[in-house]
Design a binder for these strands. Structure first.
Length: 259
DNA sequence: ATGCCGCCAACATGGCGA
């Protein structure tokens, strides 16, 4: 089963690229972030025509997440349990292949947190604490669990072209990275890192300052696996070529396959 | 130091978020 995550930065502005990538990559399950539209405005017919079931948790203008799956989608949860949130940043469901192994899939758009001196940074940390609590609640179920999305966290210096330039950014502050490690240390496997230890495995390049041609990227989109999912991990990758497409998102898809 | 992009309200462009 191929499972992917992609911050599309507006599904309506990106529809041609999104459909093109789906036809090329043929993921079984994909989580989208920053769909930037209400549920009723989501182009579900286009995705259903490619054979996907669709569940959305939309929001006008900002945020919004969605799950597409070739297999039935069951037990959908919208919003991070136990966390009061006015922003649509989390959708979770069970993907249940007929006659196959089910997975629980969480699609998240973790707050950016900048500027650090504003209320946005404590909101990010509170959100990360609630995510921690959710994963702590799910791990005892001993399911194949994939917690995927735009984490807005650069885990290590190997995940950023210029660590010094990002030292005071909410995506890379020691406090942010400590919260990331607390989550990972629950026993989650970073699928991209488990399959590729090389530095420079970026998933995001800013539109500004020629970041893409200069390869000034960061790795902030992650697929985190429970032990039961990690045991099934066969491969993982980043579709970086998508960044050069016409009207590209500033993020590219990341994916893994489970046996 | 700055460089982009998409959204909205509302008609031209400024504010917001990233």
């Amino acid at each position: 089963m191929k499972i992917a995550t992609w911050n599309v930065n507006s599904v309506k502005a990106r529809i041609d690229a999104v459909l093109g990538w789906l036809k090329e990559a043929t993921p079984d399950v994909v989580g989208f972030q920053e769909i930037k539209c209400l549920d009723e405005a989501f182009p579900r017919l286009e995705f259903e025509a490619l054979g996907y079931n669709v569940e959305t948790f939309g929001q006008k203008t900002y945020n919004g997440v969605a799950i597409l799956s070739r297999h039935p989608i069951e037990d959908v949860t919208r919003g991070l349990p136990g966390f009061e949130d006015t922003q649509s940043r989390y959708i979770e469901a069970v993907i249940a292949p007929k006659g196959g192994k089910a997975i629980r899939f969480c699609c998240l758009y973790l707050p950016n947190g900048n500027p650090v001196a504003s209320e946005k940074y404590p909101y990010k940390l509170d959100w990360m604490a609630a995510l921690q609590a959710r994963v702590e609640a799910l791990l005892p179920l001993e399911e194949s669990l994939v917690v995927a999305g735009d984490y807005n966290v650069i885990p290590t210096p190997a995940d950023v072209h210029d660590p010094a330039a990002w030292a005071k950014d909410a995506l890379f502050l020691p406090t942010t990275r400590a919260a990331w490690r607390r989550l990972a240390n629950l026993g989650l496997t970073d699928a991209i890192r488990a399959c590729n230890a090389l530095p420079g495995q970026y998933t995001f390049w800013d539109y500004q300052a020629g970041a893409w041609p200069k390869n000034n990227g960061i790795r902030i989109d992650h697929l985190m696996l429970s032990p039961q999912a990690a045991d099934r991990l066969a491969s993982a990758g980043i579709d970086r070529h998508v960044r050069s497409w016409d009207k590209a998102s500033d993020h590219v898809p990341a994916w893994c396959t489970l046996q």
